[in-house]
Each structure stands twice: as structure tokens, then as C-alpha cells.
């Protein structure tokens, strides 16, 4: 069993892109988490930057809140900008 705290790892794969969640790992502190992330997730040139966040510091929405959080948006399709005629030249 691993008694070290859990860290979430975010890697930016190329300059100009966002950091994306790539996985998690155990480490004693932030410095060690960065090193472990370097060895675990970037050994095949997957990244140019790493963020680590202690998992316990993340506040996550809860599944039982899904009805009130997300379902109200389901019948409000007008919030998508799909009711416009877009000129072909825009090539969207």
C-alpha cells in the first residue's frame, strides 16, 4: 500500500497548447511529484511542461449534484450559436 499523498498530473504536449490531465501518482511532496511525473509520463517526449496538483486540493463536482448542475442545460439548445446562417466564406 502506498502511504504517500496522491497527485494529479497535467502535461502540456506542445508550446501553445493547454496542460491536459494525463494521470496521477504518489509522491511525498510537490518536487518529488514533478520528478515522478517526468519519469512516468514524459519519457517518450510527451511533454514540454508539467503541472502537479495534490489530489486532495481539488474540489470536484459530485455525481449526486448532476441533476441540478448539468441537466438544466439540456433543454436550452438556444444557448448554442446554431441558429445563424453562416456565410460559406467563413469556412467554419
Amino acid at each position: 500500500m502506498n502511504l504517500l499523498p496522491l497527485w494529479e498530473v497535467f502535461v502540456r504536449t506542445r508550446r501553445g497548447l493547454d496542460h491536459k490531465h494525463i494521470g496521477s501518482l504518489h509522491a511525498a511532496d510537490g518536487a518529488q511529484a514533478l520528478q515522478a511525473a517526468r519519469d512516468t509520463y514524459t519519457r517518450r517526449q510527451e511533454g514540454v511542461s508539467i503541472w502537479v496538483v495534490e489530489a486532495s486540493k481539488i474540489h470536484a463536482s459530485q455525481f449526486e449534484d448532476n441533476a441540478s448542475f448539468f441537466e438544466p442545460a439540456e433543454d436550452k439548445v438556444y444557448r448554442h450559436p446554431t441558429f445563424y446562417d453562416v456565410p460559406d466564406e467563413l469556412n467554419l
Partner: peptide
């Protein structure tokens, strides 16, 4: 001793 260390 643990997975992360094994990989490193």
C-alpha cells in the same frame, strides 16, 4: 518500493 519509484 513503489510503482513510481520503479519506473524512475
Amino acid at each position: 518500493p513503489f510503482l513510481e519509484e520503479d519506473i524512475a
